[in-house]
Structures are given as structure tokens and as C-alpha cells.
Design a protein around this nucleic acid. Sequence first.
DNA 1: CGAATCTTTGAACTGAGTCAATTAAAGTGG
DNA 2: CCACTTTAATTGACTCAGTTCAAAGATTCG
Lengths: 257, 257
Amino acid sequence: MQGTPSPYCLPELPKARGLRCTASDVLHWAGLPQLASAQTDAVGFALRRVLAEQTLLHEGQAFENLYLVCCGSFKDVQIDIEGYEQVLGFAIHGDVLGLDGLGRDRHASGAVALEDSTVVVMPFAELRMHSHGCAALERLLHQAAGTELLRRADTQYLMSAPSSEVRVARFVLQLAQRQRALGHSERRLRLFMTRRDIASYLGVAHETVSRALTALVQDGCIAVSHRDIEIVDEPALRELQRMTRGRTPREGHALAA
Amino acid sequence: MQGTPSPYCLPELPKARGLRCTASDVLHWAGLPQLASAQTDAVGFALRRVLAEQTLLHEGQAFENLYLVCCGSFKDVQIDIEGYEQVLGFAIHGDVLGLDGLGRDRHASGAVALEDSTVVVMPFAELRMHSHGCAALERLLHQAAGTELLRRADTQYLMSAPSSEVRVARFVLQLAQRQRALGHSERRLRLFMTRRDIASYLGVAHETVSRALTALVQDGCIAVSHRDIEIVDEPALRELQRMTRGRTPREGHALAA
DNA sequence: CGAATCTTTGAACTGAGTCAATTAAAGTGG
DNA sequence: CCACTTTAATTGACTCAGTTCAAAGATTCG
């Protein structure tokens, strides 16, 4: 789809050490650098390269590994009975994939790379063993699960917005916030997914995503060029986002225009 | 709200042993009876009674315990900036509450009892300690997290339905399926939440839930009396549920009418 | 350069939200 | 125990936002 290197690659990347990394690296990438130690230095994991469009995790596949996105981006998907692809979420640097297999023997959702990406392969059995003696790895697992649940709650909040313009506004802010957490620019952001993916994620028609984006541009909230978005007026965007069920969408417009 | 005893109470309930139960009990209630052993018999947990309308877990509260619903029902909620109460999910017998605190120090969502209920209080620190030496409790935790994630995916699927009638149909089927898993009737089910709660959960106006329910009744799919629902024509309901984005809602109606 | 996909825009229709009013149920207090 | 109050649920009318269908640009890739 687009082979451009992701802006989310950390400087400290693979290649040097062949195709492996240590648990300490994982802790750094997962946002828990303070937990890295000599003990976690001793635990190694393999890296795996996944090309754009490739499926890292198939729906229904046996649960064996967790994956930490180390570079690139993915979408979590589930195909429903009619063949409609429901996008459940997006994963970028530092996110863990495959958590829905926890406690059962197969994955309920799949993961597809949106660009050329690299993941750390963490065999669950190993992770589990190590986690008994190593609090850091135990914490990593718990944190990953908790973060995933948090994100799903965000998604539900997002989908419950009464107007599609609000949904898209919330989506953009959510992306910006995740970027910020990674230390990247919160003003300019790149959409690594198609409008269709966004539409599926938000639960609207893909034409509606297009229209909502141009509406936000006309409101002066953002600027859009292809898949690059610039947040021009963050306060206005935040004001829009706040609108929940029970308020008329037009109020906010007047203020933004 | 309604003090009637829930139909989800298992026969083997508290009182006898005072206000405590064993980890083996928990494993039974959580659907992992095969993992109970002498070891888990030795681990005890306190029970806590929560009256209807009471808050078991406050949003933002420090993360200390996980709770297993042993009798009764709850809703997971999050209040947004404007004061709108977003319902994230419902918990009944066998479900674990408080998982969103995993790996962090506070809960992001709250839990409110929908009727008089009983929960098992599982201090996370204890659970964590025991889980190192006891695979059964470790499994319990993993399974609970995985199940929660699965359920959130179901919810997203539900919310992405293009028509509100389909959303409600899916909601009813989801409830029925959970009942079945507990060994209860899948034909007759009791809504333990208000229409408003359902509306918030589905992301629609509460009037719309009312209308969708009466529409389903007129389609001959279900029968509704107050908060009791009977599934009259499950095949038709399943047919309705299948309709995803991209198909016209009216096709299914013709078939059901 | 052409094929395929992604994206945008337009037009028509309709389903869902909002407002409003009525009915029903449940909880309160005399 | 029954009037009274409050909250929940249903129904109607109206309007508008979003879906669907259709077609035209734009971009990417072979």
C-alpha cells in the first residue's frame, strides 16, 4: 500500500543485533524503561518483519505468541458473517498485539500490517515462565492488558458520539494523543490507514469520513493533505469533541466558524 | 430499583460459610471448575454485598481489588466531560470487574450494581502472589482479561451495525448467548438494566431502543413485557442480526414479516 | 501508460435524533 | 393502604444528518 518508512521507528532499532532483542528493549518500547534490569537483559526475543498488507495474526489462529509493535503500524480486524471487515483498533509503536488470545487457545481477531513493520515475537509460554521470577515481565503483561482495555473504552466513547463529525474529531484527537505519548509531534500526524479502515473503526460509511474531514477543514480545525493531517485549531477541535448525546451539533459549529 | 432476587444466583451461595468463599468456588463460578484443587481450596476470599444502585467501583478509584460477580448484575460506566454516562458493558454471574485497573494505579471506569448483588473481593496483590505458585489462579486472571477483551470486540461489532433495529437484535442475542453459557434459558431473558442504559451502551437515543424493541415485536421476533423478553423466532432474529453495512435493512424485514 | 484502488463530491431518500406529550410503574409519605 | 411524586417507557411529529447509489478525480502500482 505504501512502503514509506514509518515515522514511529525509534532510532534504536534491529539489524545491529541480527534479528533479536532483549526483554529490556521491550520494556523500553512498551513505556516501562524503569523496570529494565540485568535480569531482563538476559531474556531474549526474536524480531519479525511484516510487510505492508501482510497478516501477522489470522483470526482463529492458535494462541502462541504476543507481539510488540516495534516499528510500523497494524489494524486489528474481525470479519463478520457477511464478510464485512470490522476494524477493532489500530496498533503502533509500543502496542501489544494478540492479547485477545489470553486464557483461550485461539485468537478471536486478526492483525494486518498497514505498512512495512517490525514486531517482537514474545512466545506466551516463555513470557509466562519468566513472569514468575521477574516482576518486570509480569508487569509488562498486566500493563498491556490494562492498556488494551482502556483503549477499547476510548473506542466505545468514540463510537457513541451522536454526529459523525464529532466521531472523526475524537478520532483525530485520539491519534494525536497517542503520538504525543510517544514523544512525537501532536500537531502533524500521518494517517497510516485508509478512509475505509477509519470508517469501519468508527462505524460509519467511508463517504461520511471524507465529508466529516472536509467539514473539519472548513471549520478551520484541521488541514488535510492526502494522509497528512495538521491540527490547526486544537481548542476548537476539543470543543467539538465534547459534544455528546443530548446536545445539538450546530451549537459547536457557530463557535468554530 | 428492583429488589427481586436475580435469577443468576447459583444454588451454592454465601451465608453458610459466613462471608467468605474459597478460590475453588471462584474457579467454579468463573467457568474453570476443572482447575479447582486442594491448593485452591486453601485460598480464601471475602464476599461483599452490594445493594441495587450502589457503586462498587468508582471511576478514578485506586486499583486494589478485582471482583467476581457471584450473584446479581452490574454496569460498567464512564462519565464523560459533559456529564453523559457512557455504559461500557454489563456484568453478570461469573464476570470479573475492575480489570481496567490492570497495570496501572487507578480504575478508568466505574461499576454500579443494577440489583442487589454479591461479589467476591479478590485483592490483586494476593491474587498476584498466589498466581506464581498456582497455575489455576494465574489462568483465572488471564482468562478474565481475555474474556473481557472478547466482549469489548463484540460490543464494537454491535455498535457498528448500521441500523438501530439490528443493534438491538444483536444486543438481545448477545444477552441470550451469555445466559445460555451459564446454563439458563436462552428463550426467556430478563433485562436487568433500564432502556436508558441499553441506549447508552448501544450508542443510540433511548427512544430509539423503545422503537426498535416494538419493531422487533411487530416483526414477530420477540415478545416484550416490561423487562422480560421472550425470543419467539430466533432464526428471524439471527437473520436480522447479520445485516451489516452495505446491505439495505429492508431486505431482512420482508423475510421476517 | 494503464489498471486498480482510494478519495472526493453530488443527489435522493430515509432512518434516527430531538422535542413534546402521554401512559405506566415504582417509590414516598401521610 | 392509598394519594402523591418521581422516574421509566412508549408513541407521535418533524427535521436533518448519514447512508446509499453513482460518478468523477487522484494516487499508487505494475
